[in-house]
Nucleic acid binder design. Structure first.
Length: 768
DNA sequence: ATTGGAATCGTTTTT
DNA sequence: CGATTCCAAT
């Protein structure tokens, strides 16, 4: 590895510490980066530097980010500095998707089929419930959510069911231990892993198969990990194992922004990096390029109240800017109105785009009032809840079908779909099958292939179940998931594409037909969502074909691979993954989701005692640590703001149907007066509120004409890439989505979700 | 077997 | 308050 002779253009426009970080090649490197210190820039430049100046092959670089969205953005930014092709050859993903991918490749070494399922929290809950039922433990004393969090906590510390049982010394933990063991058993039987397992099994793979680890160490000669302050013990082990031979581990992060301790993140990973990796070079990035003076000063004053920390000197070259607005409101409605008024004002007077504004809150439930206020004002907004679409029942059903196809052992998926749509297989029949499976040491799937053996089933049930199993089997054959070794793997060119396959599943399963029966509105919506899922499938397929690394691209990818990749992506989407930075909308999200982002205008809601810091922080086992984490969370929120920051709190707030008086957050008292502008928001006239109520419908429509809906006024012509041309009939913004009813010239009326349907506005004057 | 209504429950943050 | 679950009626 030769040193470049001339100074690289990749170092242009960087400060001295930034250059040091970018041009550091071999050996461990820790970049302690304060908020807004150009960390992302340093990482992208460093990757480009390794490839362009040092001559490292891009496929030897592994960069791990916190979200898939961050990975995508980083790839795009690196592509501007190296070639598109080189950027695509990098391995750029999250810890969890890296694990999923590697485990997929080496599944058989751990005794898993390559189609193993990844269980999300809903699946986990079902599995825990099943375990509780099997053990005849009342779920009222041991709520699945509680048990699950105990299990997850243990797993994060690499404690398995056996070790947990050994350590259990009281009634609660002894009971949890039994559930833990059974839960582990159920997942194993179902060939499934939960999120924690993804990390644990990779560690296990590394430990049990040194040869495989060795190959990976050789491949990934340069490892970069972003947001290192939020890595947990398993992730540390994975990183350390991969970098063990070459010691080329670059960690970037900020201890002051560690906010996932509750999820098992271990802040010591970053604090003790120099001990873990002796000889590490440490670079500190302290200059802030994001926020104006008052905002940064307030953030600094706040974080200084944390005792267990290494201080960083934060400074900015930007001017003082505006003071931090500290707004006192009457209640949460008033608070939302205040936020809307200010955003409207800067939008009008300063010409700041809606997409440059964000509203943060501690709990998702606080978003509702804010949504109402934005909707009433006709201001477009998006909520960072990437998983919302996949959490819809109709989408989960389709996904369960696909999962049951790729992983026959997945009983959770099978049970979800066996009577969906209703085909007359009730609880009694299912119990009979389960009992038979248990008694004969067979899987659920093995039994339903030939249900005639289950004599306790009625003839009718036997036939229906047989038909269901045959249908599944046919799909498995098509997609190449038939275990029969006699059957040759179908050649890709004879397979349907992914989209076509998914469409077939939706139709032949009867899901489509079930929603077609009823012309009621919710069913129309479900149908529209299924349509959107098909569109997503097509897009995913196109992207996959476009981004493939291998070059024999004249052959389409096997359906099997596409299906596995899609299911994996669906399992691992995060809340921020679907946030669109140029959607033209105000973004609403939790403080946790805000990490790594920046906005010119930021509002943080609910700075109240018990909310931020959250009540549960005080009840934790180490309340001091938890309080410091809440303060860091607040610090993260504040430091997202570039120009205008508003912190608001209400005198009274209604939470879970109970109205209570609220006390301002102690954090507000920690901000020096000289950086604040105290504002008392006066509630609107009651008259105004009543007008809103009475005129609701028309006022809503009138105001919406200005906002998101305004882009698609009633009567305008639109084009949809599947349904063709249509006329907008009505538009309604309910919940997070704006639903749009369109009468299409060819296919009739459809209800679409604006955020997902790529509607194109068409001018009737144009020729079409 | 399926459906809808009533009752109950639990309330942070998430890959 | 909202989601989920349970139970009774069809």
């Amino acid at each position: 590895m030769s040193e470049p002779t001339m100074q690289s253009a990749l170092l242009d426009g960087l400060t001295e510490p930034q250059r040091e970080a970018v041009s550091h090649v071999d050996g461990p490197l820790l970049v302690l980066a304060g908020p807004g210190s150009g960390k992302t820039r340093v990482i992208t430049r460093r990757v480009a530097y390794l490839v362009r100046e040092v001559g490292i092959a891009p496929w030897q670089v592994l960069a791990i980010t916190f979200t898939n969205k961050a990975a995508g953005e980083m790839q795009a930014r690196v592509a501007e500095l190296v070639s598109q092709r080189q950027a695509r050859a990098l391995t750029l993903c999250t810890f969890h998707s890296l694990c999923a991918r590697l485990l997929r490749q080496h599944a058989q070494l751990l005794g898993f089929p390559p189609g193993f399922s990844i269980y999300d929290s809903d699946d986990q809950k079902r599995a825990v419930k099943q375990a509780l039922e099997e053990l005849e433990i009342s779920a009222s004393n041991f709520s699945p959510a509680n048990v699950l969090s105990s299990i997850s906590k243990a797993k994060n510390e690499l404690v398995d069911a056996e070790a947990y049982t050994a350590a259990a010394d009281n009634f609660y933990s002894k009971t949890v231990a039994r559930v833990f063991a059974r839960y582990t058993d159920i997942l194993q039987r179902n060939a499934a892993m939960d999120f924690d397992d993804l990390l644990l099994y990779l560690v296990q793979l590394f430990r049990g198969h040194p040869q495989t680890l060795r190959e990976l160490q050789d491949r990934y000669q340069y490892v970069l990990i972003d947001e290192y302050q939020d890595t947990n013990h398993a992730q540390f082990l994975i990183a350390a194992a991969l970098a063990q031979r070459h010691q080329n581990l670059c960690a970037t992060g900020d201890p002051d922004q560690s906010i996932y301790g509750w999820r098992g993140a271990n802040i010591r990973n970053i604090l003790e990096f120099e001990q873990q990796f002796p000889g590490a070079k440490v670079v500190r990035l302290e200059q802030n390029y994001r926020s104006t003076g008052h905002i940064l000063a307030a953030a600094d004053a706040l974080i200084r109240h944390n005792t267990a920390r290494k201080h960083k000197e934060l400074f900015t070259a930007a001017g003082e800017g505006a003071r931090v607005r500290c707004v006192t409101c009457f209640d949460e409605r008033d608070e939302a109105d205040a936020a809307v008024e200010f955003m409207q004002k800067v939008h009008d007077e300063q010409n700041i785009a809606w997409s440059g504004m964000a509203v943060f809150y501690r709990m998702n439930s606080l978003s509702r009032v804010m949504e109402d206020a934005l909707r009433n004002a006709g201001i477009p907004y998006q909520i960072a809840r990437g998983t919302a679409f996949y959490e819809r029942a109709e989408i989960r059903n389709v996904v369960a079908y696909l999962r049951a196809i790729v992983n026959p052992a997945d009983e959770v998926a099978l049970l979800r779909i066996i009577n969906m749509p209703t085909r007359g297989i009730g609880d009694r029949s299912i119990e009979a099958v389960q009992a038979f499976a248990l008694g004969n040491h067979m899987t659920f799937d093995q039994v339903i292939i030939d249900p005639r053996r289950v004599t306790s089933l009625s003839n009718r049930a036997q036939n229906t179940i047989a038909a269901f199993a045959a249908m599944l089997r046919k799909w498995r054959k098509t997609a190449g998931f038939d275990d029969d070794p006699q059957q040759p793997y179908p050649p890709p060119q004879n397979q349907p594409g992914l989209r076509l396959f998914v469409e077939d599943v939706i139709r032949q399963s009867g899901l489509h037909h079930a929603y077609l029966n009823d012309k009621s509105d919710p069913d129309q919506e479900r149908l529209a969502n299924l349509g959107e899922f098909v569109t997503f499938t097509q897009q995913f397929e196109d992207d996959l074909e476009f981004n493939r690394e291998d070059d024999d691209a004249d052959q389409p990818l096997p359906l099997r691979d596409k299906l596995l990749a899609m299911l994996e992506q669906i399992s691992l989407v995060s809340d921020v993954d679907n946030v669109n930075s140029d959607s033209g909308a105000v973004t609403l999200m939790t403080l946790h989701a805000a990490k790594g982002l920046e906005f010119p205008v930021v509002t943080i809601l609910g700075l109240e005692d018990g909310l931020l810091p959250h009540q549960r922080a005080g009840e934790s086992s180490r309340p001091g640590d938890a309080l410091e984490e809440e303060r860091r969370l607040c610090f993260v929120g504040i430091t997202r703001a570039m120009r205008y920051l508003t912190l608001s709190h209400a005198i009274q707030r209604t939470i879970f149907g109970r109205t209570m008086s609220a006390i301002a957050s102690p954090f507000l008292r920690e901000l020096p007066e000289e950086h604040l502008e105290q504002i008392r928001h006066s509630a609107d006239d009651e008259q105004d509120d009543q007008d809103d109520h009475v005129l609701g419908e028309s006022l809503l429509q009138r105001r919406q004409a200005r906002g998101l809906a305004g882009e698609y006024p009633i009567g305008c012509y639109v084009r949809h890439n599947e349904f063709g041309l249509g006329v907008v009939e009505s538009i309604s913004a309910e919940g997070a989505h704006t639903r749009c009813r369109v009468r299409f010239l060819q296919v009739g009326r459809k209800t679409l979700i604006l955020q997902y349907a790529k509607l194109e506005r068409v001018d009737p004057e144009d020729d079409f």
